[in-house]
């Protein structure tokens, strides 16, 4: 039931509803309240543009863990090789500098092989959100289930680029694009705001996944009913051979 409601919200936001569905949707008090809530949320998000975003994200934690793991794996092998090598070198130096039958005394100074220091992952303190309501990414995802861009929200300014990939809306499988005035209005508003108000890019354009239109594959078979060729759409261009 909740998923269905989310689907309706998404379809409404993207203009995928018919006029009748849209009217029925807007006539529902609960849905209208939810829409008002989203509108307020969108307004709240606008106030966040000057506040640095929390730097802690799933991606950063994951990257930090991976980096530590890679360094550890890289470092333990030289350690094992360096230990006996250093010991042999010390013994050689000992015998070379102290010839004779003097007893070999145990080395009072332990041999230390330094390894790369593991820099701890430092999480920056969360900024004091005095002027803004405490809205987290998780709240947005849970409440809305769609991207910030779909709501028309622009990216918040940060002092370091942080990807918010977890907020990206999954590509819907059911709704197909249908250009309606509502959808056009949402898209154009989103585009306009992001153009005028952006202060710092959230992520480099090359790192953002670009939406790719499905490819229309036209087969050689004729549809007996329509008399036209059969077509199907493939969501990804991977493994689609094209001649040129």
């Amino acid at each position: 039931m909740k998923d269905k409601r989310k689907d309706l919200l998404i379809a409404y936001a993207f203009g995928d509803l018919t006029e009748e569905e849209m009217a029925a949707f807007e006539a529902n008090d609960a849905e209208r309240a939810e829409l008002d809530r989203l509108a307020r949320l969108r307004g709240d998000l606008k106030h966040l543009n000057s506040v640095p975003e929390c730097q802690l994200s799933v991606e950063r934690v994951r990257d930090a863990i991976l980096q530590r793991e890679i360094r550890q794996r890289r470092d333990w092998k030289p350690w094992i090789v360096a230990m006996p090598a250093a010991a042999a070198l010390a013994l050689l130096a000992f015998f070379a500098t102290r010839p004779g039958d003097a007893p070999v005394a145990p080395n009072a100074n332990p041999i230390v092989v330094e390894s790369a220091e593991q820099k701890p992952f430092v999480v920056r303190s969360e900024p004091d959100l005095v002027t803004s309501p405490p809205i987290t990414d998780a709240d947005v995802v849970q409440l809305v289930g769609i991207t910030l861009s779909a709501l028309g929200a622009r990216p918040v300014s940060t002092d370091e680029p942080v990807r918010v990939a977890s907020l990206e809306r999954k590509s819907p499988t059911v709704p197909r694009r249908r250009t309606t005035p509502t959808a056009v209005a949402i898209r154009s508003e989103s585009k306009k705001e992001s153009t005028h108000d952006r202060t710092t890019p959230v992520a480099a354009p090359t790192t953002q996944p670009q939406p790719i239109e499905p490819i229309v594959m036209i087969s050689n078979d004729e549809d007996k009913t329509t008399g036209a060729r059969r077509a199907n759409e493939v969501e990804t261009s991977n493994d689609v051979v094209i001649g040129g």
Binding site: E213, V216, I218, I242, G243
Partner: peptide
């Protein structure tokens, strides 16, 4: 008209053809 810039691939020639939906 829904779109005028769809990417079509015609079989069996695999040739690209711009399509309108």
């Amino acid at each position: 008209f829904v779109s005028t810039d769809r990417v079509g691939v015609v079989q069996p020639s695999k040739r690209y053809v711009p399509l309108s939906e």
